[in-house]
């Protein structure tokens, strides 16, 4: 299985095919809580990606040394170490950002995406593949959080990344920067993306059938029917 999946595929799968937010529905807590603005979404996703990449690298490097019985404990210690590093660095270098993300930076420890990738991927794959996978998942998370944050920021406070895009007469929908707005937006986005992949699946199937039919001549069908 390992060699069948190309490195590029390892990366891209995190963005679409198994996007952590839209497909795996993981990491919902930060997804819903911090996306009141696009910048918060980006910061959260970058912090998560940092933790994800480094923990994946460490864990996949030492995966054969960790006894199965204590693997979860070991993963958590490794993840917690990187989360604490991010938290301290952010507090020291970006105090404003750290304030607006609040308790959600320390909470990256319990983000299911990270522990999920260690258990599902890094513990079975080489460091290179694990890092690529982590980067993919991180990018997927970044895209999702940026989209969610942009929509909520645009409708809830007229801006994206602080730039005003909607005119002054547009009355901001406060609901969008409240928790209810997060659930509404995420729900509608999930519906939209599910719908997209349903359509894609259908057209893929049609293509496959068309391809199959091309390989057969009319005579084949007669024979098949006669059987």
């Amino acid at each position: 299985m390992k060699n069948k999946v190309t490195i590029i595929k390892e990366y891209t799968k995190g963005i679409w095919q198994s996007n952590p937010v839209f497909k795996q529905i993981l990491g919902m807590c930060p997804t819903l809580a911090v996306t009141v603005s696009a910048i918060n979404g980006i910061a959260m996703a970058l912090a998560t990606t940092f933790v994800l990449v480094f923990s994946s690298f460490i864990i996949s490097s030492v995966r054969k040394l960790i006894p199965t019985q204590v693997r979860i404990a070991s993963y958590i210690v490794v993840i917690a170490t990187f989360v604490t590093i991010v938290d301290l660095v952010m507090k020291a270098q970006f105090p404003e950002l750290s304030k607006s993300l609040g308790p959600y930076i320390p909470l990256i420890v319990v983000n299911c995406i990270i522990l999920g990738r260690q258990e599902a991927f890094s513990s079975k794959n080489t460091p290179l593949r694990s890092v690529v996978d982590a980067l993919g998942m991180g990018s997927g998370f970044l895209i999702a959080l940026f989209m969610l944050g942009s929509i909520r920021e645009l409708l809830g406070s007229r801006t994206i990344l602080g730039f005003q895009l909607l005119p002054d007469f547009y009355e901001p929908w406060l609901v969008m920067i409240l928790p209810a707005g997060a659930f509404l937006t995420l729900g509608l986005m999930l519906a939209f993306f599910n719908n997209l992949s349903l359509h894609k699946k259908k057209s893929d199937n049609d293509k496959l059938i068309a391809k199959y039919l091309k390989t057969k001549t009319a005579a084949d069908f007669v024979i098949e029917e006669n059987k």
């Binding site: 009355e171 929908w173 406060l174 609901v175 969008m176 409240l178 209810a180 707005g181």
Partner: peptide, 10 residues
């Protein structure tokens, strides 16, 4: 409920 949350003043 949506309007209440979106435009509490109005």
């Amino acid at each position: 409920a949506f309007l209440q949350a979106a435009f509490p003043v109005q």
